[in-house]
Design a protein around this nucleic acid. Sequence first.
DNA 1: AATGAATGAGTATTCATTCAT
DNA 2: TATGAATGAATACTCATTCAT
Lengths: 195, 195, 195, 195
Amino acid sequence: MSQTPDRREELLATAAEVFAAQGYNATTVRKIADAAGMLAGSLYYHFDSKESMLDEILSTFLDDLWARYDAVLAAGLGPRETIEALVTESFREIDRHRAAVAIYQKESKHLRTRPRFGYLADSQQKFEKAWLGTLERGVAERAFRADLDVRLTYRFVRDTVWVAASWYRPEGQHSPEEIARQYLSMVLEGIALRT
Amino acid sequence: MSQTPDRREELLATAAEVFAAQGYNATTVRKIADAAGMLAGSLYYHFDSKESMLDEILSTFLDDLWARYDAVLAAGLGPRETIEALVTESFREIDRHRAAVAIYQKESKHLRTRPRFGYLADSQQKFEKAWLGTLERGVAERAFRADLDVRLTYRFVRDTVWVAASWYRPEGQHSPEEIARQYLSMVLEGIALRT
Amino acid sequence: MSQTPDRREELLATAAEVFAAQGYNATTVRKIADAAGMLAGSLYYHFDSKESMLDEILSTFLDDLWARYDAVLAAGLGPRETIEALVTESFREIDRHRAAVAIYQKESKHLRTRPRFGYLADSQQKFEKAWLGTLERGVAERAFRADLDVRLTYRFVRDTVWVAASWYRPEGQHSPEEIARQYLSMVLEGIALRT
Amino acid sequence: MSQTPDRREELLATAAEVFAAQGYNATTVRKIADAAGMLAGSLYYHFDSKESMLDEILSTFLDDLWARYDAVLAAGLGPRETIEALVTESFREIDRHRAAVAIYQKESKHLRTRPRFGYLADSQQKFEKAWLGTLERGVAERAFRADLDVRLTYRFVRDTVWVAASWYRPEGQHSPEEIARQYLSMVLEGIALRT
DNA sequence: AATGAATGAGTATTCATTCAT
DNA sequence: TATGAATGAATACTCATTCAT
């Protein structure tokens, strides 16, 4: 019967755009329905609740992200190459799931506390372990400067990477890889001219 | 006896904390009133609306910020020293107005469009001109690398500085100046060990 | 101590103007206080409540009105002369108590039901008896046309007289007596040219 | 089964009754909803706001009124017959839209100033032009007395006609046409017995 | 799959009133 | 007499959600 290839995914994509543009709380179910060309009540045929849409958007994104991060971490690269790969994958993920990343960036902090979104906290911890660990390994292996405050550095890097979702445009002039290269150049070598 | 050292300001500080913690939209007037130990309606003796509280919080912060930025920009420093001073002042401002900065970071994007908050867009433009101009001058004067994409660099730096408000704690182990030094070290010299 | 000749009456006059201009319900205590150059709470030193102001305004007006009506009715005039005198006194009363009459016109209908304003219903009944009685006497004594529907005529006359408070201006070109003369001429003789 | 002969119109009729009985400001949305057998919030499925209900009630009434007035004015009648026709149509309109007329009478004065209700002022002006013009034509053509103050007469007539909405009851003993005839008889011929 | 209509819990805001000073 | 600050009840309006069709 149902030959709908994926009405569900269409609707989720629409919802994600609206959430990203207006914020989750400020997004009414009616706005999503308008954007999808249906009435508000009709969404409930497809989804349990507004929250479950958000849930599905975020968990789909994180599943994809971790598949790629795990591949990088399992590849046995050196610390510098690992950082390079993680940064590159992150910008690629922004390219693929811009709306979801923007939502994640804006909402995860207060969602984390709710049981249903516990996986956000889990992900955040795995995330920290991966990045902090790599930075520490880099210092130990003399790939990175010894005087680094790795915790602060981790925060700086984490923030910049994800906030990029708020200004990144897929149609823009820079590919994700190009942005990653520029960013890595700044973080690894610095912007000051070496004399 | 109590010379009421401005009930208004107390209330604004309270409101700013709640806005920062929960987001402007998700913050009900009742939550602010609870935090201030009064009833929701009583806030309207002091303020016209929830929005006018937000307005006053943001404009007070921006006025203060620009007083300091303008002083830096008028000091006739070289580009590297200007960047250092701007970054340092920014982290100090986060220390002074943490809540306001967090609100600014989260809400300014969609507030900018409303006429009442037009000054956010103005400020944003002045901000961009100050930072971009300094970076460009730095490239021209050979203080910064010639292969820099200054627009991208500007975005990276802008984001990292302000997002810091979301994790910065005044009682933490790092002073604003210390955080600025670490951040400048990363951005100016890079984290890779020079061989 | 209190040499205030009549602060109370000043305030009542102010309140009456605002009630007349904006309607009783739409008039906030603050608007009255603004017009009187004080703060809202301060009015409660002089009056028990907003309702008691309204009460005093209306009952003062009605006391005055009935003093004059009663004098007319006790004078032993013929029906036509009685109608002429009542109409003239009514327009004079509008001149003296314009605001109160306007309030009476707009609010008495729904105030009548409340116990506190029971005197409005009493007054209304006395009013009807005086006018209807005079009209009926006029028909009986062949001063007025025999084919008159006195109830309808009463309503027409009553309404026109009091509604005049909504357009009458004391500084206007017509004295109350002049308006009364014009009105009586229309009602008594008609506007059609007699052939 | 139920072809919903316009829920909207049912609700508007209900709202009009309540507005007329209690006044627009004093009418709470809850009262309307109670009278309609639903919850207050449910009204907002059908209407944007309480004000838009009022707007629709008044503009529907005025559209109807002007269709009939325009027909009268276009009929090329003499001044006396025009006045007779306008008065008759007015009382018929009160019969058809009693609630709307009562609301118009009570609220139009202060609504007129609001932009949304600008059409009330427009209507008022057309109204004045039609009546005043006819009265003046009547004086010129010797249908009406030469010593008439037409402005005052216009006000007297206008007021009496519309105020009638406040006491008229459709189930009453008088048809609109009968009321019109009595009123015209009084205004045109006067109530005094001709000697 | 989708609509039309309704629910009910909330949300900002208003306002008459109180009261210590 | 008047002020400044607060109360508490009400008010218009919003919105996620439900459900019969």
